[in-house]
């Protein structure tokens, strides 16, 4: 009978583990994002270009997977192109078939990246779109941290038509081995500076900020839908806790004008449906006398009967509703 030799490493202090962990991270990291060139601002509807200088540090795998995390409202899959140049070859990249699964977990790429990477500093309203290289290149066997394959990935995308502040993200992986569960052959990067898109009317949707209060139960809606607005005065301990009447003050923003309904009338009076819980349903086309498709956003606040107490969001701005018809 043979006995498998064992090696015991005695760790005297947790600090002694750090170099070992660092070595492990470096050894299993197949990709390095060296530098990202991304604009910090853009005008609505503008095409922006982002480049990522990357390194491949081992020779396992040959088919690049690239993910792009963008606001869902941009519909980035319709307006984004990706290509790369590298020391071993150049290629365009194509949107991956949504049903294509990785060989490791047998799940669609976008779904896995969403679950495992998330949306960075964005509170939500984002999506990952995934591209696969049209051409495969096997790195030379000498590829290592000291002798990496270098390359530049170029992404062009058209930003959406509404004002938004968002943190864009990027993912690198490899199709031959799939999305390994130890993340050993993938990496991701979120640009620290949030991109601000401006130029449309109304205040920006700050996806980099705190998640907004959920005023509507509908997952998707636009301004031709019936909007059932629910306001919980106890959330964030607002000054309307204990109020006997609560009114909605609303502005509809469209391309060329703003329509305000801030008067205290039966139409704007909210119905009490529970302790400090208020509800009002409005149908924007009749409430503002504007076709819902012409409304780009709604700005809301809640007031008592005197108008002296006004509740806005925690940052002091009106609550913002943007169409979410994905």
């Amino acid at each position: 009978m043979t006995v498998k030799p064992t090696v015991k490493i005695k760790i005297k202090s947790p600090a002694a583990l750090l170099p070992l962990l660092l070595i492990l991270v470096i050894m299993v990291s197949c990709f390095n994002v060296v530098r990202v060139h991304q604009p910090s601002s853009a005008t609505v509807g503008e095409e922006i270009t982002v480049t990522l200088d990357v390194e491949v540090t081992d020779d396992a795998g040959s088919t690049l997977i690239f993910g792009f995390c963008a606001p869902r409202s941009w519909k980035a899959s319709l307006s984004t192109s990706v290509s790369f140049t590298s020391s071993i070859g150049n290629s365009t990249m194509s949107l991956i078939d949504p049903n294509e699964v990785d060989v490791e977990n047998k799940r669609p790429w976008a779904q896995q990246i969403t679950d495992r990477v998330g949306f960075g500093g964005n509170y939500g309203e984002m999506e990952w779109i995934v591209f696969k290289a049209d051409n495969s290149f096997t790195p030379p066997s000498s590829t290592s941290e000291d002798d990496p394959v270098t390359g530049t990935i170029t992404l062009k995308t058209t930003v959406g038509e509404s004002n938004v502040i968002t943190q864009l993200g990027y993912f690198l992986g490899e199709a031959d081995w799939g999305y390994l569960n130890d993340d050993g052959n993938s990496t991701y990067f979120f640009e620290e500076t949030c991109l601000e898109v401006s130029g449309a009317s109304g205040q920006p949707q700050d996806l980099c900020g705190p998640a907004p209060r959920k005023l509507l139960s509908l997952e998707t809606y636009d301004f031709n839908d019936l909007l059932i607005i629910t306001f919980d005065a106890q959330e964030d301990s607002t000054e309307l806790v204990g109020a006997t009447d609560v009114y909605l003050c609303a502005q509809a923003i469209s391309a060329d004008h703003t329509t305000e309904r801030c008067e205290k009338t039966p139409d704007s009076k909210m119905m009490k449906i529970g302790p400090d819980l208020w509800q009002l349903a409005i149908w924007p086309p009749s409430y503002f006398n504007i076709d819902g498709t012409d409304i780009s956003e709604l700005l809301l606040n809640f007031q008592d009967a005197t108008g002296q107490v006004v509740v806005r969001n925690v940052s002091g701005r009106d609550f913002q509703l943007l169409p979410k018809c994905f």
Binding site: T220, D222, F223, N224, D225, L226, G292, K324
Partner: peptide, 9 residues
Amino acid sequence: TLGCPDNVY
């Protein structure tokens, strides 16, 4: 539907 196709009245 009135707005988004997901919302059926």
